[in-house]
Amino acid sequence: MTKRKSENYQVGYGKPPKERRFKPGQSGNPSGRPKKCLTLIELVAHEVKRKRPIVEDGQRLRIETDRVLVKRLIDLALKGNLRALSLMMTLIQQIREIESAKIERDYDAMSMEEIRADFERLRATTRADLTRAKGIDDTFP
């Protein structure tokens, strides 16, 4: 047996020898848990929510990236950039369709097959609109 300073202290499960216990302020896992490897979607979502500085009306503002992108797209469309205008009009139409679909459909009353079919229909129209706006053939995955 090991020598103990106190004869009445019993070493056992959950009771390590006093000389082997962690000292106050010492961690049992000094390197900690390794950082999680982010997926591409998580990386994009993180960057889109990151705040960036812009100058608007002579004031320096820090706003989220997604808001900056929308502002710049609208500014380009208003200045006469035909590609930005086409993309913006497509985006507005899709947003209106989604909003009206939310009002019209009661997804709680629909079966899973009906929801899937509805989703695929919206996905197909979105792909077609994007290809028309970009001027490329339909080669999306």
Rank of each mutant, 00 (worst) to 15 (best):
Q10Y: 12
E19G: 03
R62D: 08
L87Q: 13
S86R: 14
K36E: 05
R50E: 12
R67N: 01
R50C: 00
T65K: 10
R20P: 00
A117R: 09
G135I: 01
G25E: 02
G28Y: 04
L61V: 02
K5P: 02
D66H: 14
L73Y: 01
A109T: 05
Q26D: 01
G25C: 06
P17H: 07
P30Q: 08
E19V: 09
I95V: 12
V68K: 05
E97I: 12
S100Q: 15
R60Y: 02
T39I: 10
L73H: 00
N8A: 14
L78D: 12
R105K: 12
S27L: 09
K49G: 02
D118W: 07
M110C: 04
A77W: 03
K35A: 12
T125C: 04
T125V: 06
N29V: 11
D108Y: 12
V11Y: 14
M110F: 09
C37P: 01
G25Y: 03
R33C: 02
E56W: 12
D129M: 07
R4N: 03
G25Q: 05
L40N: 15
H46I: 10
V11Q: 04
R72P: 00
R123A: 07
Q94L: 13
Q59Y: 07
T39K: 14
P16I: 07
L40S: 15
A133Q: 03
T139Y: 11
P53C: 04
T131K: 15
G32P: 00
D108K: 12
R67H: 11
K18S: 11
A101L: 14
A45R: 15
I92F: 08
E42Y: 09
R116K: 13
M1I: 06
P24R: 06
I63T: 02
P53H: 08
I115E: 00
K36Q: 10
P24D: 10
R20K: 11
L91V: 01
M112N: 10
A117S: 10
L43R: 14
E47S: 09
I41Y: 07
